[in-house]
């Protein structure tokens, strides 16, 4: 089992490697013009050129900053409101219907309003990312708190725990697995929204490279930026999942025993 797990990541590389070979084959055979489908080697050389010029570092840095700020803001607001609505039925009755109604508004539809309110610079992009991150974190937290095992809460009651102490000592630790899932969902949406925000108007960042590649007819730049988005998204998700696993190592599940998701 240990050996199988050790090499499991290699199995996941088989299909991408085959696709890459097929892509290179199509490009080399000239079945698709380079203006439509540049070869993988051209994409790699574009990436290397971007790395050498410092463009890659600047773009990743700008996007990561927007992403980190928006993620932090979205998580903070979702945690406070989710904790409040999960713990207090009054807060839930007051706030949850409004939040659920706002959830049905497509997040990108907020863009014009955010631009009007916060301008075209960083604030509107960060807030758009925060909106994307907010909902999965909030929903997982509220749902998680509501679904905490009544039997565990009764243990708190027989020991005279107040509702606040039950929240802090039982509900919040119990909700941690659902919360981490919410954070991972929020992170994925955050990357999606930062790309959208940058495509709608930015002077730097990976989204800007995507837009620039399209405007100037250089698909190798578009593909290079897509690849970088993918790498950034995967790396941050991997780091968050690894951190989450250490926090919930007490779980008696197959995942907690080390199976990566």
């Amino acid at each position: 089992m240990g050996v199988r797990r050790r090499w499991q990541w290699l199995i996941g590389l088989i299909v991408p490697a085959l696709l890459l070979a097929l892509w290179q084959g199509i490009a080399t055979a000239g079945w698709a013009p380079p203006s439509i489908l540049p070869s993988p080697t051209l994409v790699v050389s574009t990436l290397l050129a971007m790395l050498a010029s410092g463009e890659m570092l600047n773009a990743v840095q700008a996007t990561a900053m927007r992403m980190a700020s928006g993620f932090a803001l979205g998580v903070a607001v979702a945690t406070v409101l989710g904790g409040l609505c999960g713990a207090s039925s009054l807060a839930r009755a007051l706030l949850d219907p409004l939040i659920q109604a706002l959830r049905s508004v497509p997040s990108l539809a907020w863009v014009p309003l955010f631009i009007l309110w916060f301008g075209i610079f960083e604030e509107s992009k960060i807030i758009l990312v925060a909106v994307g991150v907010f909902f999965p974190v909030y929903l997982n937290l509220v749902g998680g708190i509501a679904n905490v095992d009544r039997k565990l809460l009764e243990v708190g009651r027989v020991h005279g725990y107040s509702p606040l102490r039950r929240l802090l000592r039982i509900q919040l630790p119990a909700v941690l697995p659902a919360y981490i899932l919410g954070l991972r969902g929020g992170l994925g949406l955050g990357w999606m929204f930062v790309a959208a925000a940058e495509l709608l108007g930015a002077a730097n960042g990976l989204g800007f490279i995507l837009d620039d590649g399209e405007q100037t007819g250089r698909p190798e730049r578009v593909l290079a930026a897509l690849l970088l988005f993918g790498i950034c998204g995967k790396l941050t998700d991997w780091a968050l999942a690894a951190f989450g696993r250490t926090l919930v190592s007490w779980q008696d599940t197959d995942t907690a025993q080390g199976v990566k998701t």
């Binding site: 039982i170 941690l176 919930v248 779980q251 008696d252």
Partner: peptide, 19 residues
């Protein structure tokens, strides 16, 4: 009596899995 003076053992252990 306070809460601490009355102990309760449930049918299942009901241990906090994170502790």
């Amino acid at each position: 009596l306070s809460r601490r003076d009355v102990g309760y053992v449930f049918q299942e252990p009901r241990l906090m899995p994170w502790l």
